[in-house]
Design a protein around this nucleic acid. Structure first.
Lengths: 99, 99
DNA sequence: CATATTGTTCGACAATAATCGAACAAGGCA
DNA sequence: TGCCTTGTTCGATTATTGTCGAACAATATG
């Protein structure tokens, strides 16, 4: 499979980032990635089906919140912390430490 | 009209706050309130009809982002900065300074 | 009291987004 | 080659949100 397209930080849109984070499933993904650094989709699937998770990862990827690196058959996801912080300083930190 | 109910800071929900802010019209309301401090609904109506604006104010109010004080026939809105910052430190600041 | 002002509420419709099974694609490996 | 694993894509359905006119409520003011 070809590599994914990831938006450039200058093109991140605040409303799109907020909308991406305004979902419990996606917030959980983001928080998990903060803890473990990098994870493939499978390790993040709880009760939801693959297709639902694939959708959430796509929303997060398209908004700029995470990047996906393909390694063999696995897709490794990690937060784009520096790039998000460049565009929206303090935003991700505030969200990650929120209750 | 009776006074509005405003949620207590301890009950603010991150996903609900993010969802409230993840809308261009509401983000504009919030940014305007930051500049002017307090404003009634009428001064914030651009091209949208009253009923749409009333809806957006309700979403912002219910999430805890703003308070509405009734004075005569006008409803004066202002940001709940301290309370939001108590619950989600840095969040509103990051959003207000974002491009 | 009549009227104007400020917003809310209701109801219907449109638009957007989430959910999930099934089929598919790409590697890795026996 | 055949099969397993990982994840995407498609399509249909459901759920959630936004939009907006019309009617209503509350207050002020002539």
């Amino acid at each position: 499979m070809a590599a994914y397209d990831h938006p450039a930080p200058e093109t991140f849109e605040l409303t799109i980032v907020l909308r991406a984070l305004a979902d419990p499933a996606r917030l959980e993904i983001v928080r998990h990635l903060e803890r473990v650094g990098e994870a493939n989709c499978a390790t993040l699937i709880g009760t939801r089906p693959k297709s639902s998770m694939s959708h959430h990862f796509q929303v997060l990827r398209d908004s700029g919140i995470l990047r996906t690196r393909i390694e063999g058959v696995q897709h490794r996801n990690s937060l784009r912390r520096e790039e998000l912080d460049m565009r929206f300083p303090g935003l991700l930190a505030a969200i990650l430490k929120a209750p």
